[in-house]
Design a binder for these strands. Sequence first.
DNA 1: ACCTGAACACCGTTCAAGT
DNA 2: ACCTGAACACCGTTCAAGT
Lengths: 220, 220
Amino acid sequence: MTRLNRERVLRAAVALADEGGIESLSMRRLAQELDVVPMALYKHVANKEQLLDGMVDAVVREIELPQPGSDWRDAVRRRVLSARTVLLRHRWAYRVIESRTGPTPAVLEYLDSMIGVFRDGGLSADLTHHAMHALGSRVLGFSQELFDTSGGAAAPDAGAADTMAERYPRIAELAGAAAHDGGSVVGGGCDDRFEFEFALDLLLDGFERLRARGWTSAAG
Amino acid sequence: MTRLNRERVLRAAVALADEGGIESLSMRRLAQELDVVPMALYKHVANKEQLLDGMVDAVVREIELPQPGSDWRDAVRRRVLSARTVLLRHRWAYRVIESRTGPTPAVLEYLDSMIGVFRDGGLSADLTHHAMHALGSRVLGFSQELFDTSGGAAAPDAGAADTMAERYPRIAELAGAAAHDGGSVVGGGCDDRFEFEFALDLLLDGFERLRARGWTSAAG
DNA sequence: ACCTGAACACCGTTCAAGT
DNA sequence: ACCTGAACACCGTTCAAGT
């Protein structure tokens, strides 16, 4: 058994969360996984919060940054989609990122380089700032889908679906019109990738339109 | 002391979370607040998850739905902003909503009526479906700001700010250009309301453009 | 029908010791 | 320098009893 170190602790924590979900990650369970007593972990991470920070950094560093192509729009798009594939590999990560009270170094680095793409593409600092806010979590490849569908919400049985359709006719209409596979409410049964790119492209188109017209915010 | 009931339990839970944050809401603490033994709660809510469901419903029912005005764009806008004021009253709510694995009745009702505004405005079921996804959590008045700023992330001291500026020059530039009050990284020191409306309007503009041109998704 | 007490199987973390 | 043991102050929840 090699000596414990921060690297090994983080690696094991990510593996544990990947496998059993973030709710299965406790200091005690992690220690057990490493054949060590819980308190041994505290020599390598100050506490659980710092452990989570380290896990976020590890995941964000996995994101490949494709070389910026010809135009900024495409470069941003490719980066965001590449972040998305990483976040899909670690389904717990977006929740942990959201729960952080401050950005970790790897995230700052990522944001800094993403801002660079916008700026090099000719967007003003003002517009870039608002664009980054508008993208929000989408800049890291995840969108807020209103509900946590990662757990696989059970599809309602036929009877429940009938009374649903009665009580929420407009939702039922949409589900009928667009449910490719599952056929649940908004959030299930759709092509997640399509929805993600749809919104992303609307925003990028909007940024480009504002850039082209030399838009600036009042306060900027 | 009146008899306990679901109503009183939910009310106390919301009050507790409003006051002390969601992390201060435990079944035991809530019971204490109600001068009752923890197990007494379980006659009125099945478990903590169902308690949280009930709290979400209570909050969502607080949202006032302004009468739909002349055009759908304005009606959606006003509804979303009215949801936003409620969610700002209960700073814990958006996290709890995100953590639900399925929509609660009040949320379904809200979504159903919001879909109605789009449909009555002349958007196809297909476009409405994608629009609802694109709005995501924004439909309920909150956006994913990448980090939890509700805790009031400490502004870095001058020294830290200097090394930050060295390591992350583009972030520093943006912070300098746009920090009205605080002057922190993306997420702090900006006019949250402006950022929220900026992104909302970009999306609504995009929807309108697609509607006007009779856009439809390939699969739709 | 509603509330209680005691218990179970967990948490994160401190503190004082071991090697 | 690194790991351990025992303990503290918490969790959500079950189960069998009380009134």
